[in-house]
């Protein structure tokens, strides 16, 4: 029964991804037919506004929603397994804060390289990785899950304070650029950047699948997994590397998007009721993509009435869900 239930849910989710993408396509302010859509792909003309709209605006937005949703959910799941804590995630454990701090430094440093696209992307990746290493070092010393989360939150506050100091020292232009970056966006990605983004995303997924066995072993706890022959430090390093790669990639191109990495892995566990990471990886990729596509569809739907930033919207949906998880745990 269980064996059939999980694949069934995953197949449904797999079908929901293109459906959500179609809904996303339909909720845009400018309606495009499927005919327009396919002609923009197969017979693209640079002087045709509808073609440009689909290729340069709609397709990158849909694809980056899939990548960001799936990638953040996957990195959240990896963190939760690594720290054996359902409240872990790139946002809570300071991975996003690390990326944000380095992006703020790069935007406000005044050096043109750091202000360029490559500079910002590198800064986000390095920041995410350094924050991950730091949290891993702390996790070695602190066993309490709550304490670790508090350290993550403190790290977030510490980086916020540093960013505030940088903001007070920087000029108007850099301040504006950083403030806008913190709102998050699925619209800043260019069609030409998609191959690089998809390549890194697929690498992250591939590496995650390689780690299925160690991830499944980590569920019984690090000590027991170590006794069973798992090279803990090596696995930790790989997991942190994949998390930083995915969270850093998404933070670099979309800015911070809160709560997806925390809420979706929990939702996936509730729906799939399994600890088998082959299912969990697939589930997180699919549910994360659906979640962000639906969130962004709502933003598109109400864009005439209100200009909602994606980071604010995912927080509005995600925060109550995390409170629900906490209450469930406390009960």
């Amino acid at each position: 029964m269980i064996k059939k239930r999980i694949p069934f849910i995953l197949v449904i989710a797999l079908l929901l991804v293109p459906l959500s993408a179609f809904i996303h396509l339909s909720t845009g302010e400018i309606y495009v037919s499927l005919n327009d859509f396919f002609s923009a792909i197969f017979e693209f003309k640079g002087n045709n506004s509808t073609n440009v709209l689909i290729r340069e605006f709609k397709i990158p937005r849909i694809l980056i929603a899939i990548v960001a949703g799936g990638g953040l959910a996957l990195s959240g799941m990896l963190m939760q397994t690594l720290f054996n804590n359902p409240l872990a995630g790139p946002y809570v454990l300071g991975i996003n804060s690390g990326a944000s701090l380095l992006v703020a430094l790069s935007l406000m440093s005044g050096f043109s390289f750091f202000g360029s696209d490559i500079g910002i992307i590198s800064a986000a990746l390095i920041g995410a990785f350094l924050a991950g290493i730091l949290m891993m070092a702390v996790a070695q010393r602190i066993r309490s899950q709550i304490s670790l989360l508090l350290v993550g939150l403190m790290f977030g506050s510490f980086t916020s304070a540093l960013v505030s100091i940088l903001e007070s020292l920087s000029g108007e232009g850099a301040l504006k650029a950083y403030t806008l970056w913190t709102m998050g966006s699925l619209l800043q990605v260019e069609f030409d950047q998609l191959p690089l983004i998809l390549f890194i995303f697929i690498c992250g997924i591939f590496l995650s699948f390689i780690l299925i066995k160690p991830l499944n072993m980590l569920v019984i706890g690090e000590r027991s997994a170590g006794l069973l022959g798992l090279k803990i430090s090596q696995v930790r390093f790989l997991i942190m590397g994949i998390t930083a790669l995915l969270a850093g990639l998404i933070t670099a191109f979309c800015g911070p998007i809160a709560f997806v990495g925390l809420a979706v892995p929990n939702l996936t566990r509730i729906l799939l009721r399994t600890q088998n990471h082959s299912y969990l990886i697939l589930g997180n990729l699919l549910f994360g993509s659906i979640f962000l596509l639906v969130c962004d569809s709502f933003i598109q739907l109400f864009s005439r009435q209100i200009a909602l930033p994606i980071n604010a919207f995912t927080s509005i949906i995600g925060a109550p869900f995390v409170v629900f998880i906490l209450m469930r745990k406390l009960r």
Binding site: G28, E29, I30, S49, V52, L53, F57, L187, Q300
Partner: peptide, 13 residues
């Protein structure tokens, strides 16, 4: 007057 990216692209063609 706030306009979405899609709309501004089409409105300014």
């Amino acid at each position: 007057y706030t306009v979405s990216m899609e709309k501004i692209l089409m409105d300014t063609k």
